[in-house]
Write a protein that binds this DNA or RNA. Sequence first.
RNA 1: CGGGGUGUAGCGCAGCCCGGUUAGCGCACCUGGUUUGGGACCAGGGGGUCGCAGGUUCGAAUCCUGCCACCCCGACCA
Length: 491
Amino acid sequence: MAKGIPKRSENYPMWYQELVKKADLAETSAVRGCYVIKPYGYAIWEKMQATLDKMFKETGHTNAYFPVFIPKSFLSKEADHVEGFAKECAVVTHYRLKNAEDGKGVVVDPEAKLEEELIVRPTSETVIWSTYKNWIQSYRDLPLLINQWANVVRWEMRTRPFLRTAEFLWQEGHTAHSNKAEAVEETNRMLGVYATFAEDFLALPVTKGHKTESERFAGAVDTLCIEAMMQDGKALQAGTSHFLGQNFAKAFDVQFLNKENQQEMVWGTSWGVSTRLMGALIMAHSDDDGLVLPPKLAPIHVVIVPIYKNDEQLQAISKKANAIKTALELRGLSVKFDDRDTYKPGYKFNEWELKGVPVRLAMGPRDLENDTIEIARRDTKEKQMVNFAEAETTIIELLDDIQLNIYNKAQKFKLENTHIVDSFEEFKKILKGNGGFILAHWDGTAETEAKIKEKTKATIRCIPFDGNQEEGKCIYSGKPSKQRVLFALAY
RNA sequence: CGGGGUGUAGCGCAGCCCGGUUAGCGCACCUGGUUUGGGACCAGGGGGUCGCAGGUUCGAAUCCUGCCACCCCGACCA
């Protein structure tokens, strides 16, 4: 076991936080609730960004950037929206400091009070729709498909690295359409992009579905989401895509002239994923030895650790190590030759395992003699000895296998911990035990949903797309229901 | 904002109850040497206004009072 990390099974939250710290992903900062993302953690985020950005462009979107400050009045234009975010906004009231009269530091200059306070964006619908009003006049201006990479601030009471932070990095897509069908299609398309990204890159199986009315995004007509299962059985919302209807168009008076020369309100969508995905990645795959990164998102694919007793051996090993490094790099892989002479091999093995590097190569005197190399995979910790000449192809195949294996393992875990439940007693029993996803009937009312939450802390994560239509009785009220919904404890 | 806890070296902690040499240990760091196929060892070394402010006392990390900060569990949330 990695030194200093608690066991996953013993204290999951602490294991998670320690892992984030020990694997060099992030650390607490001077500002409460704000975290520093360290270079290794940021490198993973950059990989996610690059992949998503490509997918957005492939679906016709372009990037732009809007201001971080939002005039207070903007936020109140959409009633539900302001209600949803009002409680967690950082507000800028002044624009200047001055030297304190007692000579101790600086104070806010009361003379420099802003006429209208500015809100540090918790999300950008309002600034963006106020801008779209100027950009959209005709049906020819539509659809407008924009994405923004940005930071947002939500003043949360309790924070946890990556999962919930006062400031976080994300992308937010904001699109405008001439008709409802097209906007709905866009909402679905982008949820699909997220699901594909989660499954193919994060190696994380997700459940797609609709949020219930009470869990819906503030200002949306419909909120779609992908929900993933963490290793403690809790659910994590990994991405959302909102159909905004004409709510923001009405709030900001965004109209267009259609082909018949009639004014119409624009239809909108918005969708986002955040650095929370980092949390998902960590919690879904890591083990007691540290991170397990899917090759497609690993900043370093292969690390080479030399084992040597003297300079001549190191020279000989370096030559071969650099040869395989170059060969793999030509295949587009990121390879690290760890020739630090300040640490022993055992230390390096543990360190790279902690950091989740998918493949480790070790080469020592024995390998020089036999013309072999040791290949170790992070996910299963299996090692194999192969002829040096075969190393390259073995590694390439191994990386694909690891990506697949990590996904399959997560998928198996998800299936094993998804329960079909027909009584409230069993429902409570499962939540008290290992948790997981619970598929149960619900009468469709917010009252029942709230009661269940109050009694069990479990929430409806989503109404799954792939749920079979079947007659049943609500697990709590006994009233008729047509479809099972997904319940779970959530992050 | 409720309930609990902790502040002592970069990190993790002991010492406090029962006041008394120069405040200690592990990790990390620096120097030298031996090591190197799963977190090396030996020797030497550097680093502290014991959270802050008062008080009690011949004497306070230790006792008392006040303040501050942070963490955990709830409520809130991507």
